[in-house]
């Protein structure tokens, strides 16, 4: 396999994490509007969504940080 192909596959797998983070965010926003529609307890919905969204974004961020810094310093070494 060429280096380029490997790199692209890696990028695709990494993007899954971002897709997850984005869809979780989108889902939570949707649920908060649903909760609003149904007159549910908003404090619960909001606090859970804030925590959950942050967690997923940080996770995706950390993973991307690892990915890009590994690749960056990899080139430096050569």
């Amino acid at each position: 396999m060429k280096d380029r192909t490997v790199y692209i596959i890696q990028l695709i797998t990494l993007s899954f994490n971002w897709i997850l983070a984005v869809s979780v965010t989108w889902w939570f926003i949707h649920l908060v509007t649903v909760a609003d529609e149904l007159n549910d307890t908003q404090t619960a919905s909001l606090s859970i969504s804030i925590v959950a969204i942050t967690v997923f974004w940080i996770l995706a961020g950390v993973l991307s940080y690892v990915f890009f810094s590994l690749h960056k310093h990899d080139e430096e070494a050569e």
């Binding site: 890696q10 690892v66 990915f67 810094s69 590994l70 690749h71 310093h73 990899d74 430096e76 070494a77």
Partner: peptide
């Protein structure tokens, strides 16, 4: 492996 070569900087990031 994400291009890991064990350079000090990579190690540090990890």
């Amino acid at each position: 492996a994400w291009g890991y070569k064990g350079t000090p900087k990579q190690k540090h990031a990890l």
